[in-house]
Design a protein around this nucleic acid. Sequence first.
DNA 1: ATGACGATTTACT
DNA 2: GTAAATCGTCATA
Length: 224
Amino acid sequence: MKPFVPGKGRRLSRRDLALSANALAERLLGCIIERTLGDGRIVAGRIVETEAYLGVPDKACHSFGGRRTVRVEPMYGPAGTAYLYFTYGMHTCMNVVCGAPGEPVAVLLRALEPVAGVDAMRVHRSTRPSGKGKSVPQKMLPKDDDLCRGPASLCRALALGLDLTGGDLCTSDVIRLVDGTLTDDERASIRRTARVGVRSSAEWADLPLRWLVGASRCVSGPLG
DNA sequence: ATGACGATTTACT
DNA sequence: GTAAATCGTCATA
């Protein structure tokens, strides 16, 4: 595999991202998300797990039924819009908005393989999730493979905060999506499963809308 | 104004 | 396996 050079890859264009959520969930596997920190350093991870959220008809989706609130508004933006949300009182998760203009569909980033800035990631992960309160105690520092395992963990590792929601991933100076590839082995190991953590009617909870690179040691949750 | 809940993570039995 | 942590968001009133 070619070595990863931060800031040098081909940035994904709006046209690259204007796919259905299903198509983008698979397309993003192997692509890189780069985050420029306040001091100019770059942290980056390679996407190995995603979930598709299908919008108005999808009971597990924040835009189900056409719900349109301040929080969800970015989902109605153009493909390439970042949609980040706060949940469980302490965690942030990140989506890439896609689909046709005005269609509130998106892909959730669930796990990354760290490819740059591992030291900074460890620092980010050593701080409390919410930054306030007692929060979740933590004893051991995560191993490298665990740094970006899980949608909230990867947001902490890359310092992806709520301030980024509504931003444009195609033009932002602080966060970029860069095209990437999978090896043949990785490509062959792609699996689809039900989405994680969705409590909705069985029909929407059971659909295979989660994509993962089985060969990666960085995927989260059940592999079945 | 109030109450219930969460696209999670972590620790503990 | 179970449960705690912790608070913005949303629906209801």
